[in-house]
Design a protein around this nucleic acid. Structure first.
Lengths: 362, 362
DNA sequence: CGGCAATTTGAATCCGGAT
DNA sequence: GATCCGGATTCAAATTGCC
C-alpha cells in the first residue's frame, strides 16, 4: 500500500479507539459497525417497584461532561472511521435517544450519506418502572455510505429472502441478548451492560458484506460483531480498550464455528448474475433471425435481425430501445416486454428462454 | 399577563411560523406538536417498476440551501416554541432520517429534555422501487419536556388502557392517512403532500394533555393537530403560512364534532398479528445456516443458507418455492413440508418452531 | 347492490458494469 | 473520472371498474 500501515485481520486490538484507528491503513475495510458509549447522564440510582436496584449503565467509559465533549469525541472517531472505510463501504452506528441525534448529525456533517435509519424493536424491553414515560422499546441504527455518490453494497435479494420474499423493512424485531448467548462472569453477573444479540449483527452483515470481506468494530466490547462475522465467513477487526472484554471476546470467538462457504454466500441478485445478451438467443436459433416478436397485447409486431436488432416500422435497435420507442416510454425492459408466438398460437416471453440458458450455466 | 400579548384560541393563524410565534405570550401552551419541513433533497424523478411516476415532495417550502441553513431555521422556531411552552409542557417533533438527527440535536442544545423517541411504524409504506435500500417504513417522533427538572404531564393509565392494559411502548403502528380522511382538491389530487393520520395525533394528545388545555402546531398544514384537539376537547392554535391550507383546515374543522368526555379512553387499539418469516428461525439459530432440512419421507434433503434460502440441487429459493419445485407442484407450504432431524433421529416440523416464537409474541 | 378484479398511490435523499 | 446504455425494480390498502 505504501502507507507503512498493516491491516491486522481476525484480531481484537487492545487500545484506545481513536489512537488504534489511526494505525489502520486508509480505505481498507468494507463495513464498520459501531456501538459507541451512550452518554446516559443518569443522575441517580433507579429502583424497581419492589425496591430492587436496576443495574444501569454507569461505567466510567460512559461518562461525558457535556454534549460538546461527546460531540468532539464522536467526530474524532467517525473521522478516522471514514478514512479507514473503503469508498464503496458502509457504516452502521447504533444508539438510543440519549445519543443517536448527536451521532446522526455528526455523520451528516462529516460527509457520510445516510441510507436508512433502522429501528431495532425489542421483544422484551425493560418496562418503565416509574410509569412516567413510554416503555423504551427500541434502539436506532443509522446505515450510511461513504458519501452521496458512493457505489455501496446492498444484498437486496438476501434481505428479501430472509423476509419471506417481501422487501425487508426498516423496523426489525429481535429479543434482547439473554440466556446462553449472554456472557457472564464467574459470579453469574452479566459481563457487559449492553451486549447486542448476534441475530442483529447476522442481518446487518448479511445485508452489506460478502464472504471474505473485512468488518471493523471500533467499540468491540464482548465481540458480538466479530462472532457474527466469523460465523458468516467474514474477516473481522475489533478494537477494545478494556483488557477484560478483549480476553472474554477472544475466548468467545474460539467457540465460534464458521458455517459452510455455500451457506454463508447469499442469493445473488439478478443484476449480479452473468449477463446473457439477446444475441445469444438469435445465434442459438431459439429466436431465429427473421422471426416476429409481439408484445403482450399483440399491439406491436417487430422483426428480428441477424444482428439481434429489432425493426418495427421506423424504430430500429435493441429489444429495449424499440420497446421504449413504441410505448413512448423513457425506458423498457425488452426481456419482459417481447414475446414469440408458438405454433399453437400461445405467447412465450423471451425472458423464459434467457432463464433456460442461465439455468444451463450460460 | 402583563406582556401585552394575547393568546388566540381555536384559530389557525395565517403567517410565517417564527414571526407569528413571537407574537404569542410566554409560557402559555401545554403542548406543542411540530411537523417541520424534512429537507428531503430529492434529485431526479423516480419511477415505479411499472414506469408510473412517483409524486414526490418537491414543494418550495422543503428546500434548504444547506444543513447549516436548515439548522438555523430549526433553532429559531424551536427557541420561540420553548418560550411559548409552559414550564410543565411538552413538545413533540416528527421527522425522518433526513432531518430528525438535526432536530434532536437542536432540541438538546436548546435545553429541552428528551423523554422518549417514539417510532411511527407505517402499515402501508411506499416500497423501495429500485431495491437499493430497506423499505423506509417508519418515521420518528421526539417527545421532550421544557427542561431536565420539569414536571410534565404523562397520562400513564390512559396509555396503558389504550394498549390492552400493557405499558404503551415506544413503537406505534398506524396506517398512512388515506381514504376519506385525506383532504383532496377538486381534481381529486391530495391537497397536502404529507398529511398525518389523525389517529397518531389522537394518541399523542391523549398521552400529554387534559381536556381544555392548549395545543400549538407551528406547521399546521391541513390542520390534523387542530382536528384531533377539537375532537378530544382540547383548545388549539395553528400557525400556517399558506392561505390555501389555512382555508382548507378551517373548513375541515367545521366538520369535526367534539366527542363525549371519557369516550376517548374506550377507543380500541389496533393490534397487528405477528407474521414470522423463516429467516427469523435462521437468524436466531433455531434452524442454523448450513443445516439440512428433509421432507416427511426423507425423499429430499435441502441445505439452509444464511439468507434463509433453501438449496437442493439446482433448486434455490424460499422454503415454499423449493418445496414446490421438487414436487413439481404449483405451490407448497414450506412450513408443513420441511423438517429438521434431531440428534436422536426424529423429525421435527419447522412449523413447530414458528409456533413457539409466535407464542412468545414474535 | 354485491362481489371480485384491476388500478392507483404513498415524506423517496432509489443503478451499475463496461468502455 | 465521465459516459453509455442494458435492464432491474413494488407492498399494502383504498378506490374504481366490471359483471
Amino acid at each position: 500500500m505504501g502507507t507503512g500501515l498493516d491491516l491486522p485481520l481476525d484480531e481484537v486490538l487492545l487500545g484506545d479507539c481513536i489512537a488504534t484507528l489511526k494505525r489502520l491503513p486508509p480505505a481498507s475495510v468494507h463495513m464498520i459497525f459501531a456501538d459507541p458509549p451512550y452518554n446516559l447522564q443518569l443522575k441517580g440510582e433507579l429502583r424497581r417497584p419492589d425496591d430492587s436496584l436496576v443495574d444501569g449503565v454507569d461505567d466510567a467509559w460512559d461518562q461525558f461532561a457535556s454534549f460538546a465533549a461527546y460531540d468532539a469525541f464522536t467526530r474524532e472517531w467517525m473521522t478516522e472511521c471514514r478514512r479507514v472505510l473503503r469508498k464503496d463501504g458502509t457504516m452502521w452506528v447504533i444508539g438510543s435517544y440519549h445519543n443517536v441525534f448527536r451521532l446522526g448529525a455528526a455523520m451528516q456533517d462529516l460527509g457520510y450519506w445516510i441510507l436508512n435509519d433502522v429501528v431495532w424493536r425489542k421483544a422484551n424491553p425493560m418496562p418503565n418502572f416509574r410509569g412516567r414515560r413510554f416503555t423504551n422499546a427500541h434502539e436506532t441504527m443509522i446505515w450510511a455510505a461513504h458519501g452521496p455518490d458512493s457505489r455501496y453494497r446492498f444484498n437486496y435479494a438476501a434481505m428479501k429472502s430472509l423476509n419471506d420474499d417481501l422487501q425487508m423493512r426498516s423496523d426489525w424485531y429481535f429479543p434482547l441478548c439473554t440466556g446462553g448467548e449472554r456472557l457472564r462472569g464467574e459470579d453469574g453477573a452479566k459481563l457487559h451492560p449492553t451486549q447486542k444479540p448476534e441475530a442483529l449483527l447476522h442481518r446487518v452483515l448479511l445485508a452489506c458484506t460478502m464472504p471474505g470481506e473485512v468488518v471493523l468494530d471500533p467499540f468491540s466490547g464482548t465481540g458480538t460483531t466479530a462472532a457474527a462475522a466469523k460465523r458468516l465467513g467474514r474477516r473481522y477487526i475489533g478494537i477494545e480498550r478494556d483488557p477484560l472484554y478483549k480476553v472474554a471476546s477472544e475466548k468467545r470467538l474460539e467457540g465460534v464455528e464458521p458455517m459452510d462457504e455455500g451457506a454463508a454466500l447469499s442469493l445473488p441478485s439478478k443484476r449480479e448474475q452473468p449477463r446473457i445478451a439477446f444475441g445469444v438467443l438469435v445465434e442459438r436459433g431459439l429466436v431465429p433471425a427473421g422471426s416476429t416478436l409481439v408484445d403482450r397485447n399483440r399491439r406491436w409486431r417487430a422483426t428480428v435481425g441477424a444482428d439481434a436488432t429489432l425493426r418495427c416500422g421506423a424504430a430500429v435497435g435493441s429489444i429495449h430501445k424499440v420497446g421504449a420507442a413504441l410505448q413512448a416510454a423513457p425506458s423498457c425492459n425488452g426481456w419482459t416486454f417481447w414475446h414469440i408466438e408458438t405454433r399453437d398460437g400461445r405467447l412465450r416471453l423471451i425472458d423464459e428462454f434467457r432463464q433456460e440458458i442461465a439455468a444451463q450455466g450460460g
